[in-house]
Design a protein around this nucleic acid. Structure first.
Lengths: 204, 204, 204, 204
DNA sequence: TATGAATGAGTTTTCATTCAT
DNA sequence: AATGAATGAAAACTCATTCAT
C-alpha cells in the first residue's frame, strides 16, 4: 500500500537477512518465498525483482556467508603477530565460542544441513576455507612448530573436525561439556600436528 | 486394474526400499509420495494403507537402518576374539571400505543431509551408536590399552570423525587419497586414545 | 467437498470440452487453467491429474478435433456413390454451412488464431487434411473430370481457400453474402480444376 | 542511471520497432512489456510515458503497418502507367517476393496470428486494403479487361488468397514450390477475373 | 522526459492425503 | 488389502502497471 523505496543494496540485504534467518530456523524447504516476503514486509513482486527464484537467494546467502567467513580467517592467517599455532587456536576458539559479533560469523553448517545443498557448501569449504588453513599449517611447518607427514590430508581433517564440531557439538552440549569437548578436540589437533603438548594454553 | 496381493511385510519393505533409495538419491523433500508409489508400482492408496504419512515412512527407514547398523557394531563389540583396539580398527576400516555387504551398512549420513532431519538422525547416533563405541573404549581402558582422560568426549569425537569422514571423504576422494586420509584419521584416533603408535597395522 | 468420481474417459472429455469452448471464446492465453476447472466444477488438482499442463490440454484438444475432422472428410473421400467433383462440393458446402452436427465439426481456425500455435495447427492440416483432398483430386483426374497441371499446389490452394473461408467469411458475413461468396469460391475451384462450368449444381 | 534524452518521436518509434519485432517473433501474449523495454534499453517508466498500456502499443504498431501497406498499394492503384491487370500482378508478385525493402512491407498476418487480435487486423484489411483492390478491379471492368459478375465477393476472395498465401506459403515452401504456387494462384485470379489466360506474363 | 524500485493480483503448478469402491 | 480418481491448500512465479524522485 504505502510504497517505501530503499537503496537496492539495502533491500537486497534485508531480503537475504530474512532468508538466512528463516533457512536456519526452519530449513530451506520449509521456508516459502512468502515467508521471507512477509518477514521483510514487501510485496510478492519485490522478492522476484531482486531474485529470480528461491534457489537464487539461497546461493546469494551462502556466497555472502562464505565471503565473510573466508575474510575472517584470512585476516588471522595474515596476522604477523601470531605464529601458526596461535592462529589455529584463535580460529578454533572463536568458532567454538558462543558470542560472535559480525566479525565472527555464525555456524552455517546448520544451513547446509537444512538446505540439502551439501555439494555447494562443501565446495566453498574446499575452495575457500581449506586453502587458508593449509597456508597456516605450512607456515607452521616452515616455522618448525608443526611436524606433519601428510599436510594436505591433515589439514582437511582439521577443517573437518572444526567445521563439524562447530555446529554439531553446539546443538547438544551444555557449556561445561563444550569446554571439555573443545579441550579434547584441540588436543587431537595438537597431536595431529605433532606439537609438544601444552606448548600453548587454551583461554578461559 | 490388476490387483496384486502380497505378504504385507513384503509390501511394506518394498515401499521402504524404494523410499530409502529415493531419499538418498534426491532427498526427502524432493521425493514425493508419488515417486515412491510409482517406483513400487502400486496405487496411491496402498502407500497410505501401510504408512500414515510420508513422515512415518522416513522414520521407519531410519529406524530400520540404525537397527542393522547398531547390530553390526554390537556384534563387533561383543566379539571375544578381538581386543578393544582391534575392534575399533575393524569398525573404522569397514566403514571406510568401498564394498559393503548387507552386514556392512552403507553410509546414511547422506540421508540425514538430504533428509534435513538431523535431530532425529543425531539422536540415533547418540543413543544407539555412541554407547556401543563407548563400551569398546571403556573396555580398552580396562584392558590398559587406552589411556584417556575424558572418555565420554573422546568417544564422541571419535564417532564424529568416523561418521563424517565415512561420508564426506568418500564423496570427494579418489582411492589413494582415501587411503592416506584413513591413515591420518586412524593415527589421530590412536593418539586420542594414547595408544603407542604402530601397535596395530592398518590392513592393505 | 462432495466427491464425484467418474469414468476417467468421461472426466477427461469434460475437461477437454470446457477447454475447447473457452479457448474458442476467449483464446488460449486468456483462458486460465482455473477457468476450465471452474467450468467443469472440479478441484484444482483434478485438472493436473489428467493433464500435465495447460499446454498439454491444448494439444489434446487440437488432436481430438483433427481426428474427428479427418474422419469426416475421409468418409466422404471413401464414398463410392459420389464422383470426385461431388465429393469436393459436398465438403465445401458442409464446411460453409452454419449448422453442423457432431459429424460436421466446427471451424477451429479461430482456435488456431487465438491459440497462437499456428505451426502445430498447420501441420495437422498438411499431414491429415490435405492428403485426403489430394486423393479426391487425383481420383478426379483419373476419372477425367479434372484437368490439372500442378495437382499438389492446386490441392494446397483449394485447401487454403476452403480452410480460411470457412472461418474468415463466417465471422463477418451475413447469410446472403455468404451464399454469394461460396458461389464465387466454388467457381474458382471449378476453374482451378478446369471443370466445365455448371457441370454440377450448388444446393440452395 | 545515465539519462538519455531523445526526440520523443524517435523514442516512440524505437519502442514500436522493438515491439513489432518481438510481437512477430514471439507473439503478443508471450512478449512482456519488460521484453520491449529491455530491447530498447530504457526504464520501465519510459514505456508507460509513451504508451498507456501494452495494448496501446499494439494498436500503434498495427496502425503504422497498415498505413505503410495501404500507401504502398495506393501508389500502385494510382499509377497511370499500368492497366488494372498489370497492377494486380505487380502487387501479387511483390507480396510474394522474398526481398522487400521498406516500401514493400513484410507480411504481418503472422502478427495477427501471434497477436490473437484477428478482429482488429481483419478490420484494417476490410477497411483499408480491400477498397483499394476493389478500385483496381473496377478499373479493370471499366477497361474491359475483367469480366466479373460479383466484384465485391471476387475482390474479397482475391485479397483473402493473396493475404493468406503471402504468409502461409512462405512459411513452409522452398523457392521452387513457391514459384509454382504463385503461378497456380495467379492463374486462379486470372480465371476469377475472366481474363484471357496468358494475357500477361509472370516475371522471372 | 526519464528513471527504476515497488506493487499485488493473478497464474500455473505441486503434492500429501482422502475416500468411495 | 488394494485401487486410483479426486481433493484443496499452498507454493512458486509472472507481469502489467504505478509512483516517488
Amino acid at each position: 500500500m504505502v510504497r517505501i523505496t530503499k537503496d537496492p543494496e539495502v533491500r537486497r540485504n534485508e531480503l537475504m537477512d530474512a532468508a538466512e534467518r528463516l533457512f536456519l530456523e526452519k530449513g530451506y524447504d520449509h521456508t516459502s518465498a512468502s515467508d521471507i516476503i512477509r518477514a521483510v514486509g514487501v510485496a510478492q513482486g519485490t522478492f522476484y525483482y531482486y531474485f529470480k527464484s528461491k534457489d537464487e537467494i539461497l546461493d546469494a546467502v551462502i556466497d555472502r556467508y562464505f565471503e565473510s567467513y573466508a575474510k575472517f580467517i584470512e585476516q588471522i592467517a595474515d596476522d604477523r603477530r601470531m605464529d601458526a599455532l596461535q592462529k589455529l587456536l584463535y580460529i578454533v576458539e572463536t568458532l567454538f565460542s558462543e558470542k560472535r559479533g559480525k566479525s565472527r560469523p555464525a555456524g552455517h553448517r546448520d544451513l547446509e544441513r537444512k538446505v540439502s545443498q551439501h555439494e555447494r557448501y562443501q565446495q566453498h569449504i574446499d575452495e575457500k576455507i581449506t586453502p587458508i588453513i593449509m597456508r597456516i599449517v605450512k607456515q607452521g611447518i616452515l616455522e618448525g612448530i608443526f611436524d606433519v607427514e601428510y599436510p594436505t590430508e591433515t589439514t582437511e581433517l582439521i577443517v573437518l573436525i572444526v567445521e563439524h564440531l562447530h555446529d554439531d557439538i553446539r546443538l547438544r552440549d551444555d557449556r561445561k561439556r563444550r569446554k571439555t569437548t573443545m579441550k579434547v578436540a584441540w588436543s587431537m589437533i595438537e597431536k595431529a600436528l605433532n606439537v609438544p603438548p601444552g606448548s600453548i594454553q587454551l583461554h578461559s
